[in-house]
Computed example of a mutant assay.
Amino acid sequence: MNIEFGTYLVTQGSRSRGRTTEDIVAAAVAGGVDVVQLREKGATARERYHLGRALREQTRDADVAFLVNDRVDIAAAVDADGVHLGDEDLPVAAARDVLGDGAIVGRSVSSVEAARRAVQAGADYLGVGAVYATDSKDVREEHAEIGPETVAAVADAVDVPIVGIGGITAANAPDVIEAGADGVAVVSAITAADDPEAATRELAEAVRSARGSP
């Protein structure tokens, strides 16, 4: 599956201000999101499974890519398009063995060295961050606020798509794209917005403008 990585939503119901994750995803889809990743830290595996099934239907109907954070088993169970892995998750090759050659397998990295290792292991794309300060994810000090400069270094070092993540908004997304990212991933910028659909549209427009796309 070929994925357009421009605008990438990572779900987290605890930041949705009382709205359901399904409602946030519906609004993001209406606003033009390209990728939805089921995250939901703090939810049980069963809860993520049932939510994943619902989001899989929403995204399939809209032709939006759907990935699962961390859990290869849940990605397989809900027929997601793939999985996004961190340092403590299964290795890329093991995820590929479970999900098959057609699955999208992403990997979080914060340095050029880690990026090269992930690509050598077979990652299809990289999430690079935290670009800016964020409280949406626990980040080790050395991986916090790595800046567009590190995004640019990673972009120069690898030949797979990269997505900037961490503290990204419509205001600073152009800097991340201009540094070499193919897209930006956000949690709060959409999930906590007063109007998630409008926020998605604004972010997508910022990305398109920075790319020089119509």
Rank of each mutant, 00 (worst) to 15 (best):
E142Y: 10
A103R: 02
D63T: 06
T44V: 13
F66W: 15
P196G: 02
V72P: 15
A185N: 12
A94P: 11
A192D: 12
E88I: 04
T134L: 13
V105A: 09
T44Q: 09
D195A: 10
E57D: 10
E47T: 00
D79M: 01
V139Q: 09
A27G: 04
E40Q: 03
R53T: 06
A170G: 08
G86T: 03
G167I: 09
V105F: 15
I190D: 14
V25D: 04
G129F: 03
D81W: 11
E145S: 15
L85Q: 02
K137H: 13
A121M: 12
V35E: 09
A170D: 13
G122F: 15
R140D: 15
L99F: 09
S188L: 10
R60W: 15
D97I: 10
V158E: 01
S111V: 07
V64G: 05
V119P: 12
F5K: 03
A179S: 02
P91I: 01
E113R: 02
V139C: 13
A171W: 15
Y8K: 08
V72M: 07
V112K: 05
V158Q: 00
D87S: 14
I177H: 11
D63S: 15
V139D: 05
G167L: 08
G122D: 13
V160A: 04
D194A: 10
D79V: 01
A95M: 09
V92W: 13
A77V: 04
S16F: 12
E178H: 06
G100W: 00
A115I: 06
I3T: 13
D89G: 05
V119L: 14
V78T: 03
D34N: 12
A75C: 12
R211W: 07
S14R: 13
A199M: 01
A115D: 07
V35L: 06
G122E: 14
T134H: 12
E47D: 05
I190R: 10
L99I: 09
G18V: 04
A157R: 02
D79K: 05
E113Q: 08
E202A: 11
A28W: 00
T134S: 12
T200K: 00
A115G: 14
V186R: 01
I74D: 13
T7M: 04
A173Q: 05
V29N: 03
E205D: 12
L67Q: 07
Q58H: 02
T20H: 03
G180W: 11
Q58E: 01
G42Y: 04
A198Y: 09
G180S: 06
R39Q: 11
I74E: 11
